Simulated scan of single mutants.
Amino acid sequence: MGYHYPIDETWTKEEVVDVVNFFSLVEKGYEKSVNRDELILLYKRFKQIVPSKSEEKKLFSAFESASGYSSYHLIKKARASNENKIKM
């Protein structure tokens, strides 16, 4: 990993950790596989921290530009799937 996760300086330490955990799981979903329920749970926590759709899109875009991994497409796949493990 030669890039930084997008974070907001106004977030608390706990919020930063939760957002980094979410993006880390997205990364893992592309490189290996992830538990679908865990991904959806971390995404729900992410949405508590970033309730604005426009801010979410901005962060997802920054992460995708840096990593090449689409958070949106992984979440979409997880929601549409009944499988326990998700991999892109």
Rank of each mutant, 00 (worst) to 15 (best):
L42C: 04
N82Y: 11
G68W: 00
R79V: 07
I86F: 05
G29W: 00
I40S: 06
I40E: 11
N35I: 04
V20R: 12
K85E: 14
G29T: 04
N84F: 12
N84G: 09
N84T: 14
A78Y: 01
G68N: 01
I40Q: 12
E64I: 07
R79Q: 13
E83R: 15
E55T: 05
V20M: 08
S61E: 14
E64M: 07
F60Q: 00
S65T: 10
I40W: 04
I49F: 04
K76W: 05
I86V: 05
L74F: 04
K85A: 12
R45N: 14
Y69I: 04
V50W: 03
K85S: 13
P51H: 13
V34H: 03
K44D: 14
K76R: 15
E83L: 14
R36N: 08
K85R: 15
K32Y: 13
E38T: 13
G68S: 00
Y72W: 13
G29Q: 08
S71I: 04
S65P: 03
L59S: 10
G29F: 02
K77I: 03
K77N: 08
N82Q: 10
F60C: 03
N21D: 11
K47E: 12
Q48C: 11
A78E: 05
E27S: 14
E27T: 15
V50K: 07
E27H: 14
K47W: 02
S52L: 05
